[in-house]
Design a protein around this nucleic acid. Structure first.
Lengths: 233, 233
DNA sequence: CCAAAAGTGTTAATGCTACACCCATGC
DNA sequence: GCATGGGTGTAGCATTAACACTTTTGG
């Protein structure tokens, strides 16, 4: 068990922080200030400290970059990236997560402001991202699409109170499909504990006022939402 | 970036090697020869070496314990286990995998023979497993159940050529349900590239000869198998 | 009034379950 | 022949997609 056969590694947590901006699924990227890959875009991430789990490290990164409180964050594991040469300097094993957050409005979010930016994922995937972050981002987007099918996490893209139509647009954007408004309305309102009506209404999109909802406490859908989305994919 | 805030960790790959023996979903466990947890049962696992990925380390463990060739192994990531105190001696971050393998027949499989044994998962979960391996095993079994619903991996439990009824029994055992033989037959034979008929038949279970199949090249099912399994769960 | 978006009703097609029934073997 | 398990047919039920239609606002 020498250090050359069972060496210690640095373990990092990287987070694909996804949101919906201007009708596009977008990801938060950071322009790297240091080598390796200085000046290139990368997913936010950092090393795991001695007293925290990997998931806690990811939640910490998410908070530092976006201000999303750790308790509210819904992190999902995407995978473990461990090609021995993925970091040119030393062995770093990375655990990747997705975080789905509401539209932050601002172009330049949290702390290290100047260096961070939102980019539509289509565009981000064409950038020469640092390390193997293109692979991670591809897997993250795939994962997010499935996540919406089997969980209630689409509500994580909506801020506080939202209308059924706003929720529908989340699915339409992530899945790149049209969804029938009437059928969608019936489907989601029939699922128990998915949505909680507030009793309020809004007219923010014009037309007839829409009822407002908040996310319910259901996490995993009893049946996959919209088998139709799969056939068209 | 001192060593106390961004310390290096040992990274391990643990594998819940699952099979079906005597009509029970079973897992391969090893009795530990060394501290910590000397004498207790644990999942097979080992540290990741300098020139391999974590998944390769898991495949290596699988091969060492069962002889399953690395190319044939279908490993699926369960999760990352990283509670800082999960190993009483030093920081070890563990990545857990499931491997679904055909019934090996033997009670004492590969290499370190005397120390390994198959145990039904129900029973294994009552044992005081080493580290947080009870948590890992719980998650692994959960994961495997979902895996059968969305993928074709049930065939990994069958050795080479198998009948539809044998495949059905896999689902019945893992899901703990009865499945209608006729409906199941129709459903799986209709899914393109799930099963490849060999043209041969067998009478190994008595009754009318059954057609033999091998696994097709489909990996992910176009629709979840058996919505019924969910309602009864 | 008209346009726009919310939400409801209705129908036709689909898919699933349950169960009856026939098939091909060993004994 | 009979028992056993393989495999097919079919009717009734539940779910879904498509789309017409009503409701409630703003201009």
């Amino acid at each position: 068990m020498s250090d050359s056969t069972n060496p210690h590694s640095l373990v990092a947590a990287d987070v694909a922080i996804l949101t919906i901006r201007d009708s596009a699924l977008s990801v938060l990227l950071i322009r790297r200030a240091n080598d390796p890959f200085r000046g290139q875009l990368a997913l936010p991430g950092g090393f795991v400290e001695a007293d925290e789990t990997v998931e806690q490290a990811a939640a910490r990164e998410l908070f530092e970059e976006t201000g999303v409180p750790k308790s509210a964050s819904r992190l999902d594991t995407i995978g473990v990236y461990s090609r021995p040469d993925r970091d040119p300097r030393r062995r770093v094993i990375s655990v990747a997560y997705t975080a789905l957050v509401p539209n932050p409005g601002l172009d330049r979010p949290g702390g290290d402001a100047a260096a961070t930016q939102w980019l539509p994922v289509d565009q981000a995937l064409k950038e020469p991202l640092a390390f193997d972050h293109v692979d991670i981002l591809e897997d993250a987007v795939d994962h997010a699409r499935k996540q919406l099918e089997y969980t209630t996490d689409a509500t994580a893209f909506c801020d506080g109170e939202f209308t059924i139509a706003e929720l529908r647009r989340v699915y339409e954007i992530v899945w790149q499909t049209k969804i029938d408004p009437g059928n969608f309305h019936r489907k989601v309102t029939r699922i128990d504990r998915f949505l909680r009506p507030t009793g309020e209404t809004t007219v923010r999109d014009g037309g007839r006022p829409a009822a407002l909802y908040t996310a319910g406490d259901l996490k995993r859908l009893p049946l996959p939402l919209s088998p139709a989305a799969r056939t068209s994919a």
